[in-house]
């Protein structure tokens, strides 16, 4: 009996400026393969299904346990992580495409810089550096810590931006991930001291007002982060902040 193989139909692109094309690969099947190990076969044996020698497929991956977010791609029409997607659970042929929201660098590797730029824009960190020891920060209620922990699972993988109809070439919307991170850092007792700065970043062009409530993000998030709850909570906070800024408040920090 012939060796069992799996078919990969991969949308490839040689460089950021060239046009994409499809290439089919037949790779040797092993038990418990994930998409990464299937792609590795194209490196080990860089021949396409027609038997022609080709370049190995390029992709990005790091942790291989769905916490780094680097290997997101569209697998049989669904944006998800290649590492946690098992070949045995997929229909054949397996179609792999790069995420369309981001600029393609090569093959399946995309440039997610816009997400990291958004995190910088909304100040998704807690400023604690000083010239002297500031001592311990205020404590956090356990109940709050529990939901905030869920938000901290975001790995900036880009799947929510890929699914969002309002994140595209026509719009500068920063997308759901960064909005939820503002909620996370504003929930932190020390981070809360700079809450206003983050909210004001969300009120800039391309900020929270770009959300059109399609709620695709919460459906597709691989970490199950309550993104739409975060967005609605940030809607409330940005509205209150704008009223405080306009009418005046001693609590608008």
């Amino acid at each position: 009996m012939a060796e069992k193989t799996i078919t990969l139909v991969i949308t490839r692109q040689d460089s950021p400026d060239t046009s994409p094309y499809e290439e089919t690969f037949e790779v040797r099947y092993r038990e418990n393969m994930n998409i990464i190990s299937a792609l590795m076969e194209t490196q080990r044996n860089p021949y396409n299904a027609k038997g022609e020698k080709t370049t190995p497929v390029n992709w990005e991956s790091n942790c291989l346990e769905e916490v780094c977010g680097a290997c997101s791609m569209i697998i049989n029409g669904t944006p998800r992580q290649a590492c946690s997607t098992l070949v045995d659970k997929l229909e054949q042929p397996i179609r792999l495409e790069p995420m369309a929201t981001f600029p393609v660098m090569r093959d399946l590797a995309v440039d997610r810089s816009r997400m990291f730029d958004s995190l910088k824009k909304v100040k998704a960190w807690i400023p604690i550096d000083g010239t002297h020891d500031l001592g311990p920060g205020p404590r956090m209620p356990e109940k709050k810590r529990q939901w905030a922990y869920e938000l901290s699972k975001c790995m900036t993988c880009g799947v929510c931006l890929e699914a969002c109809p309002n994140v595209n070439d026509n719009s500068d919307f920063i997308g759901p991930a960064a909005l939820s991170q503002v909620r996370l850092f504003n929930a932190h007792p020390t981070g809360e001291m700079n809450a206003g700065e983050r909210l004001e970043a969300l009120m800039e062009d391309g900020g929270i007002s770009g959300c059109g409530n399609s709620q695709n993000c919460v459906q597709v998030c691989p970490k199950g982060i309550p993104l739409t709850t975060s967005i609605a909570a940030m809607n409330r906070d940005t509205n209150l902040q704008s009223f405080k800024n306009f009418f005046g408040s001693d609590h608008a920090y």
Partner: peptide, 21 residues
């Protein structure tokens, strides 16, 4: 607002996405 959206109900046929469209 209509022209800023790139509707994707074909790929993401969720209820709210249809409402959005």
């Amino acid at each position: 607002i209509v022209f800023v959206a790139r509707n994707n109900t074909r790929r993401y046929g969720f209820f709210r996405n249809w409402m959005f469209y």
